[in-house]
Design a protein around this nucleic acid. Structure first.
Lengths: 156, 156
DNA sequence: ACTGAAACTGAGGAGGG
DNA sequence: CCCTCCTCAGTTTCAGT
């Protein structure tokens, strides 16, 4: 994991469909050298996949909410996480420190769907209550954040 | 936006590097027909881009926090949003309904960096106070969520 | 809107320094 | 770890339907 790898990663985060030839030009290596490096980054689990980003509204997902999930006294976090994973509308799931045990991001078509989704969440064994924060607008999301050089050096 | 488009979108969300030839086989069209459809989806803003997903830990980003941002009485949300956008460690930024005006996701290398980042957030004009929730583990994130057929039909 | 042909370009592996 | 070749497959354009 050197500077070249980090530049490759940054480029692929920005444009996941960039060609190896282009990448090579950007970092000053041949396409096959880049191809080899990217393969290693994938195998090592640094790059976990490539995905198209879709405007949620364009596919009918007009409502986003952040939901805090408060556990019951006897809740098993693993079981709760498994139940959350089975709900299609739960897009992200974070185990957090604090009063709540999880914070999840829910994406649905309408507020009626949100109501139904919250019912499903509350029915999960181990969930005492939920607190929802409705997203009014998304300024940006999942933006490529680059760690600076000195910081990332320790991760090599 | 028909069933074929939705299948193409779903496939590209799962694998952003799938070839047009492969996509064509999956949906029963020629590569050139798929190429044309994908181009239109991109132009229409349905597909907003393609990005490599990276394991944050592998690039030295070990600390994630969800930060609620409470505005001052005189805060201008636009200005606050612009200031947030300039902070590299702020990966996502949601304008929300409720006491807080924004919820942001911050990703940094260490807890020291988190402390520094929170200082930066609090120094933004229009920010009265912040409330941070530290992420202990991420079960899943940005998972491809598919809207069902009837729901998405209205978005055509 | 899709197909199929044609010209082009990248992917991905072999071989060598 | 990188390069240069080489071949095959995919991309992209375009005329035709």
């Amino acid at each position: 994991m050197d500077t070249v790898d980090r530049r490759i990663i940054a480029a692929l985060r920005t444009n996941g469909r960039v060609t190896y030839a282009d990448l090579g030009r950007q970092v000053g290596l041949s396409a096959s050298a880049v191809h080899e490096r990217v393969g290693k980054l994938e195998t090592a689990g640094v790059i976990t996949g490539y995905h198209a980003m879709v405007d949620p509204r364009a596919v009918g997902l007009d409502v986003t909410a952040l939901v805090s999930i408060h556990p019951t006294d006897t809740a098993d976090d693993e079981d709760v996480a498994d139940a959350l994973a089975e709900l299609n509308e739960v897009e992200s799931c974070y185990r957090v420190a604090g009063d709540e045990s999880f914070v999840v991001k829910v994406r649905v078509a309408t507020v009626d769907d949100l109501e139904r989704s919250l019912s499903r969440l509350r029915r999960i064994k181990g969930v005492a209550r939920t607190r929802s924060t409705v997203v009014l607008s998304t300024r940006f999301e999942g933006r490529p954040n680059t760690v600076d050089e000195e910081r990332s050096a320790h991760a090599e």
